[in-house]
Amino acid sequence: MYDEIQEIKAQYPRTRSAVLPALRIAQQRYGWLTPDALREVADALDETPAFCQSVASFYDMFHLAPVGRRLVEVCTNISCALVGAQQVLEAFEQELGIRAGETTDDGQVTLRALECAGGCGWGTVVAVDHRYREPVRPEDVPAIVQEVRDGG
């Protein structure tokens, strides 16, 4: 990973600018940004782990805690909220048996509420592993969960 990050570093005039792509590499490798992963990124960038963690914590797409194999995110920002995002989220909670922000006991699925996903014309937006489904209604939820569980 050290060498990979050096390559990215070389593309920017200031090495700090490489922190987001470097964090992404680390997350792809470890699944989430473990303290050791953050230390590794920091070492490669010649920054402190605290700085890397601070940056990562600002962005929703970086995970500072373990997540499931699959990631289901429901946009609950204003446009989606107006067309029933809360009901969609609750449907997922019921179907998966967990609350938003939690991971199923088998470690398969993590459910999260998401800030605006940029699909305001097609609410409610649901992202499964960052691939959008839109619009999603509460009645669509069981099929999506089944699909996710089946590995689709």
Binding site: E47, A50, S54, S57, F58
Partner: peptide, 10 residues
């Protein structure tokens, strides 16, 4: 420039 005390979250 010790980058140790930082804000976390948003």
């Amino acid at each position: 420039e010790d980058h140790q005390l930082v804000p976390r979250n948003r």
